[in-house]
Design a protein around this nucleic acid. Structure first.
Lengths: 140, 140
DNA sequence: GAACTATTATTGTATATACAAATGTTGTTA
DNA sequence: TAACAACATTTGTATATACAATAATAGTTC
């Protein structure tokens, strides 16, 4: 494997990842919410009406609990999530998305769908599968 | 194009990008240098003995000048780069890597080459080219 | 050449994140 | 049960980064 092509490829991967998250951040900016805050909301929403602990959120987001705590502090201040002691284990915290959070998230998702929309047809399903397969192979 | 596959793919891209930069950061940690600081050093070194301005470094790193300034502050404190007013245009700053910086960078590169080494043969040249082509196609 | 504009770097501020340390709760074991 | 270990969250601290504002120099135009 040529080193030159290898380094050029991983550079592309890193750059593209940044491009996507930076773009999402820009779309969210008018709503005064950050991309990590949005991801916490989405994670909570995917659980329907079940709470998640700080640790569980961190696992899903590949984030340290300490940092999840601070993101939740921000969301709490906006009334988008609730946090209360877990009754069965008082070390844990039950974090849930509030109805306001759910409504807000719907707005954000509409906006972001518009950003993703033109990308949806850049690659065929087969190409996407190849892309995913090759990236996974690189890490395996 | 299936939305499900699309979102799974971009998620993979973002995750893999983070995996690479986080791994590089870990390798650099024993040397007490951050990944962005390392990237500035590399950028300066690629210019041989020509200085670069703050803006030029920022362009290459896809970084804002304001943040490049602060990274250079750190490198200055370690004696790895020099910063002086550009004689022909006193708004600009001439940033250069010092001999110590160059030696240090060589050490870092050896260490990082060891990290990349096992990845070099995960994909064939052809697969790498396909990967790069598909990622580029997604953004185009 | 004076007034205005553009360029370049820096500083200020808010958010995110890595890592270490601290706090409080639960589980274990002597 | 008392002492200790493990777990879950939070707080502290340093770095990076986005964005806005500032400062200083250079270029432009009247």
């Amino acid at each position: 494997m040529s080193k030159k092509i290898y380094f050029s490829t991983i550079h592309q991967i890193i750059k593209t990842g940044h491009w996507i998250t930076d773009s999402v951040s820009s779309e969210l900016k008018p709503f005064d919410i950050s991309e990590p805050q949005y991801n916490v909301l989405r994670t909570l929403n995917s659980q329907q009406h079940q709470p998640l602990t700080v640790e569980q959120i961190g696992k899903q987001m590949i984030q340290r609990s300490s940092n999840v705590t601070r993101i939740i502090d921000k969301l709490l201040g906006k009334g988008l999530v609730s946090r209360k002691e877990c009754p069965s284990n008082r070390r844990k915290m039950d974090i849930m998305i509030t109805p306001e959070g759910r409504n807000f998230l719907r707005e954000l998702d509409v906006k972001l769908a518009q950003w993703h929309s033109p990308l949806l047809n850049k690659l065929t399903d087969e190409e996407l599968q190849t892309l995913t397969r090759l990236i996974r192979k690189l890490r395996k």
